[in-house]
Amino acid sequence: MNIAISTAPAARARISSQWLVITVFLAPAVVLLAIFLLYPLLSSLRLSLVDWTGLGTHSRFVGLANWAHLAQDTVFWRSLWNNVILALASIVIELPISLALAVLLEKAGRGSRILKILYFLPLLMSSVAIGVLFKNIYDPNFGPLNVALRAIGLDIFAQDWLGDTRFSLASTIAVICWQNVPFYMILFLAGLSSLPAELNEAARLDGASEWTIFWRIKLPHLQGAIRTAVLLAVLGSLRYFDLIYVMTGGGPEGSSELMATYMYRTVFSSFQLGYGSTIGSAMFIIVSLVAAIALRMTRRYETEV
């Protein structure tokens, strides 16, 4: 009895010291999250309730008027639809190409080192540099793309790729996919490298073809990487900004407008900080909902290898 009483204070002291260590190590991360995530989020929500140009100190409280305007804003809904198209293109185009390249490079073995470096180069380039590069490539008069088409007699296919509302979004999506494919390729390569070689050898000894090995062994093994890739592709597409802004600025006539570019123009070109904050807050809500739904759906279809 006396031993139990004497050890109780020691146990409490040990638990207190553990909580102190946990608090000390977590405090910097919590402070940084509060400064760079929580405060901007709350500030954006607060600004979405006011009418303010962002200049001076005079702002007018308008309540939910900005949100009511957002619900009827056709430009916002069009930009959201363009984000959805970009997300679908990222899944349908980027991920299959990345997976195919990863499987081919994994089979190539040591001889694929140079190819891996070459394929990874687009991801190392600045998005602004890529935007300027392809803006020149797409130039309707002197761009290499149209020059090549005219040189081989395909003048009918030469277009104003970024200045025509029919092609501007598709042209920018093609560049985005080209830039992002290496990232998902490396992600899938990492997943394939963790697959035990004994499984492949055992399947080959049993007479399984490469196609069967891919569908029955490699693809199920990559389900975690695929789930992560889908989530990153969707969330990245909903927040995309830089390359679109450099290449088209959201034009022409809003045909390539995204939520982020619309928010930027609203705040820094139209000087509507209150309404721009409303667009930013709406983006946060949409991205959070999509992330929650995507995580739930991908976990539902998860199977064990």
Score class of each variant (00 low, 15 high):
102 A>L: 11
78 R>L: 02
128 V>I: 15
156 I>L: 11
151 A>V: 00
94 E>A: 13
24 V>S: 09
82 N>V: 02
50 V>S: 00
187 L>K: 01
140 P>N: 05
220 P>R: 10
10 A>C: 12
297 M>Y: 04
115 L>I: 14
134 F>Q: 02
126 S>M: 10
224 G>I: 06
152 I>V: 02
49 L>P: 01
134 F>A: 07
199 L>D: 01
248 T>K: 08
192 L>K: 05
2 N>M: 13
153 G>A: 09
247 M>T: 05
301 Y>C: 02
286 I>R: 01
183 F>E: 07
225 A>T: 00
75 V>S: 03
26 L>T: 14
260 A>N: 12
204 R>G: 00
51 D>W: 13
74 T>E: 11
90 S>F: 03
301 Y>L: 11
152 I>A: 03
149 L>K: 00
244 I>W: 11
82 N>W: 00
173 I>K: 01
241 F>T: 04
42 L>F: 11
234 V>L: 13
85 I>K: 05
251 G>C: 10
11 A>L: 15
290 V>G: 08
262 Y>A: 12
216 R>E: 12
50 V>T: 08
126 S>R: 10
151 A>N: 02
28 P>N: 05
87 A>Q: 01
48 S>M: 02
284 F>D: 03
255 S>P: 14
50 V>N: 03
65 A>K: 06
187 L>H: 01
42 L>M: 12
36 F>N: 05
148 A>Y: 06
94 E>C: 14
105 L>Q: 06
158 A>P: 08
105 L>K: 06
76 F>N: 01
199 L>Y: 12
11 A>I: 15
284 F>A: 14
175 V>D: 09
245 Y>H: 14
211 W>N: 11
11 A>C: 12
241 F>I: 07
276 G>T: 07
170 A>P: 09
13 A>K: 15
120 F>G: 13
220 P>S: 10
24 V>F: 09
168 S>F: 07
57 T>R: 02
64 L>V: 05
200 N>G: 12
83 N>E: 03
185 M>T: 04
147 V>Q: 14
96 P>L: 11
141 N>K: 08
96 P>H: 12
25 F>E: 12
36 F>C: 11
263 M>E: 06
203 A>N: 03
234 V>M: 08
172 T>C: 13
63 G>W: 05
76 F>I: 03
75 V>K: 03
176 I>M: 11
254 G>R: 03
214 F>E: 07
1 M>I: 08
279 I>E: 06
72 Q>M: 11
42 L>N: 07
72 Q>Y: 09
281 S>L: 10
288 S>F: 15
243 L>R: 02
63 G>A: 04
21 V>K: 10
242 D>T: 13
59 S>M: 06
40 P>F: 05
129 A>T: 05
269 S>Q: 09
298 T>F: 05
241 F>G: 04
12 R>F: 14
3 I>Y: 01
60 R>N: 08
179 Q>A: 11
60 R>Y: 06
47 L>G: 00
17 S>D: 11
159 Q>D: 00
172 T>H: 04
289 L>M: 13
302 E>L: 07
120 F>T: 12
236 G>Q: 01
179 Q>I: 00
27 A>R: 04
45 L>M: 07
271 F>C: 04
135 K>N: 08
116 K>I: 15
221 H>S: 10
9 P>I: 15
80 L>F: 12
174 A>S: 10
51 D>S: 09
42 L>H: 06
38 L>V: 15
170 A>T: 13
181 V>Y: 02
12 R>Y: 15
